[in-house]
Computed example of a mutant assay.
Amino acid sequence: MGDRTEANPPGRYERILRDAGVRITRPRRIILTILADGGDHPDALEIFRRTAAIDPSISLSTVYRTMKLLEEKGAIQRHVFEGGPSRFERADGDHHDHLIDIESGEVVEFRSDRIEKLQEEIARELGYEIVSHRLELYGRKRQPD
């Protein structure tokens, strides 16, 4: 695992947990590294599978407890996409929206300036300022014509 700094996600996660008074055990360090290295939206069982491949002694409850702590501290975001388990992603990334493939469960991140401007315009017309938002689109791959 080497020397991790605050500039990289595992180091940032470790700092957040240490600041909360949580000991950074080897199992937790493995979980934090898996979270930082993955560019996807894994659920707790997938995180558990990845940790078990490195260290089979890590329990599912350790994964759940670690994810809950990270979520409570704002280091990760939990998404509950329709019809599926909770999935997790880093909270420090750039804003993006999600397209969820209803057949495969794949989560595709995207960003659209047009959608962002339209949301601002709608909120303004209704007398609101957007504080935060999440956009989730659900679909299936189109079949070739």
Rank of each mutant, 00 (worst) to 15 (best):
F110A: 00
P27W: 00
E71M: 10
A7Y: 13
Y64C: 09
I47G: 01
P9I: 13
T25V: 08
T66S: 03
R65T: 12
R114W: 10
A44F: 01
K68F: 11
E116C: 07
G39R: 08
V131K: 14
R15T: 13
F110L: 00
E89M: 14
I31L: 10
G93C: 11
L137M: 11
M1V: 12
E116G: 06
I34H: 04
G139R: 00
L99V: 06
Q77N: 15
G84V: 11
R114Y: 11
E129P: 05
I76K: 04
E106K: 12
P10E: 02
Q77I: 15
D19F: 08
A52M: 06
S112A: 02
G93T: 13
R78V: 11
L118K: 12
T33N: 08
H95R: 14
R65F: 12
R28Q: 04
F81H: 10
L17T: 04
D94A: 15
E82N: 15
T5H: 15
I100F: 04
P56T: 00
E82K: 14
V63N: 02
R140M: 02
D145M: 13
D92K: 05
A20W: 08
L137F: 11
E72Y: 06
A52D: 03
Y128G: 03
D19E: 13
P27E: 04
H133Y: 14
R15M: 12
E109W: 08
G84C: 08
G93M: 11
A20K: 07
I76V: 07
P9T: 13
T25A: 07
A20E: 10
T33R: 07
L118G: 08
P56H: 02
L118D: 11
R49E: 08
G38T: 14
D3Q: 12
I24R: 02
H41T: 10
E136A: 14
L17P: 02
Y13P: 01
K141V: 13
A75L: 00
I30F: 01
A52R: 10
S86A: 13
Q119V: 13
P42A: 00
D40F: 10
G127Y: 02
V107P: 02
L126W: 06
Y128W: 06
L60A: 07
K68G: 10
